[in-house]
Structure formats: C-alpha cells, structure tokens
C-alpha cells in the first residue's frame, strides 16, 4: 500500500518543526529518513502513526486521507515503533506482543487461537520466543527493541513506521532486524541515524534539514560528499561497498580533511 505525505507542516507553540514535506513511499518499498538531530524526522513519523496531527497537509494511506480514519482504523493499516517506549508495568513479553492485536479486537475480547499462533510465529521470527514468559522490564535494550518489533508485526499492518529501531541493538541484531524488514515486503518508512545502514537498507532516502526535505532519491543519488557536508557538517568520503555496490561513507574524525593535512 502506498504511503504519501502531502505538504505536511507542523507548527508547535509557534515553532515550525516541519515545512511542507511531501514524500512518496511506493508500496512495498523501504524509504529512509535521515537528517541531523532536530531536523523533523520524528515529527514526520509521528504524523503518520497519529501521535501528532499535522498543522496543514495530508497523509495519504492508499487512497485514504489518514485524518478521516478513526485511530483504530488507522492502526490496522499503520504500525509503529515509536521512540518513547518506557513502561512502568512489568508485562510479560507475550502480553506486550499480544497488545499488537488491540486495533483488531473489540474491547476485552481474548485473542483467537489463530491470533495467538501469529504472535508465536512473529516472536520466533524476531528471536524473542524464548523470552515469552519473561517480564519486559528485565530485558536488555536489544531484547526489548525486538519485542516491540514483534508487537508491530503482530498488528498486521500494510505500512510500518519505525523511529530508529536499531537503537540499543548490537551489530548482529541490527543487520537481522533490517533484513527482516526487507523480507516482510511491507511499505516501510524508517528513521535511521546510521547513514551506512540506511544506504544498505533503503530503496529511497529522504534527507531532512531544518524541517524541509533537501534531497530525495536513491541512496547513490542522495549520499554525496557535498550533501553530507552541507546537511550534517561532516567530511566524508563516499565509496562503493565492494560486495553490494551500495554507497558507504567513510568519516574522518577531524572537522575537515584540510585541517588534518595541515597537522600532518
């Protein structure tokens, strides 16, 4: 299912967080949003998973204006992994995953056997099945993140929105999670900080800077030395991954390569 952001603007307390953002996420594709801190990435995502109402503009899900759907209807199509994920209550892993069925269930109706089966399959997929009866508060950051991914997948969405899902994950789990996203075949809008992971994962990349989209295209088109310097203020060399051909960035620690040269 296509996801389309159409001229989204968000103004909160007089501050413009998002300036007329338009972005097409074609069905089944993975689109990454990158940009420095405070550039509006999370704000854009929050409009899609309904935590925030855009000041102007429209989010289109397939042919539907998201604002015309109820929260429940929206949640049956769009699942999210938000950044704020603290809970004080020690639910078991299985309970948290099962809550992903909430938009599909009326009131307190228990899960059907088929739904429980789905929970079990998804938990196996993201490697948290062995934690099913553990309390979520005792999990490591990585385990917890995978549990939340399981919850989002159990929701059976057509569109998946993820805000830095690789936070707290070690390299292996980062790679596994992102390859899992590829395999799901869902329409994915994902915020990533790691530009190299983004380049390897995403079909298309959008670069946000001060609430505006400054570049949009394939990773190869978007990730240039010039753009990285302009948007992130960092010097980087762009190379091709020897196996996959994806663009990958090599950073140098000093502010610019020229100063480094003067020192050496």
């Amino acid at each position: 299912m296509d996801l389309r952001l159409d001229a989204l603007s968000v103004v909160v307390n007089g501050r413009t967080l998002l300036r007329s953002l338009s972005l097409d996420v074609p069905g089944g594709r993975i689109v990454g949003l990158v940009g420095p801190n405070g550039s509006g990435k999370s704000t854009a995502l929050r409009c899609v998973y309904r935590a925030l109402r855009p000041t102007t503009g429209t989010v289109w899900i397939g042919g539907d204006d998201l604002a015309t759907l109820t929260l429940r209807q929206g949640a049956r199509t769009v699942a999210a992994l938000a950044q704020e994920n603290q809970t004080d209550l020690d639910f078991t892993v299985a309970e948290v995953v099962a809550l992903g069925r909430t938009p599909h269930l009326r009131g307190n109706r228990p899960l059907s056997p088929g739904e429980r089966d789905r929970c079990r399959r998804v938990m196996e997929q993201v490697d948290v099945l062995h934690l099913a009866d553990r309390g979520v508060l005792a999990l490591s950051g990585g385990e917890r993140q995978r549990v939340l991914v399981a919850r989002a997948l159990v929701q059976e969405p057509s569109v998946l929105v993820l805000d830095e899902p690789t936070n707290h994950l070690d390299v292996r789990h980062q790679i596994e999670l992102l390859s899992l996203l590829r395999r799901t075949g869902l329409t994915v809008l994902i915020v990533l900080h790691d530009l190299n992971l983004a380049a390897a994962l995403c079909d298309l990349l959008g670069v946000l800077h001060d609430g505006s989209l400054t570049a949009y295209g394939t990773p190869r088109e978007v990730l240039t030395t010039d753009l990285v310097r302009r948007v992130f203020g960092v010097e980087a060399s762009v190379v091709s991954h020897p196996l996959t051909g994806d663009p990958q960035l090599l950073y140098s620690l000093s502010p610019s390569t020229t100063t480094e040269r003067t020192f050496s």
């Binding site: 949640a75 938000a82 603290q86 809970t87 639910f91 909430t102």
Partner: peptide
C-alpha cells in the same frame, strides 16, 4: 474499568505507542 482493561494495558505503554495501537 474492567471493560477498559486492554486500553489500560495499552495506555501503560505510553501515549505515543497507544496512538499507534489505535487507543485515544
């Protein structure tokens, strides 16, 4: 309150997450 128990579960996960699960 018992009728709202699943919503209470969802609310305990935080307002953002609750919105993404369709709970206002």
């Amino acid at each position: 309150l018992r009728r709202h128990s699943r919503s209470l579960d969802v609310m305990a996960l935080g307002d953002e997450t609750a919105a993404s699960l369709g709970v206002n």
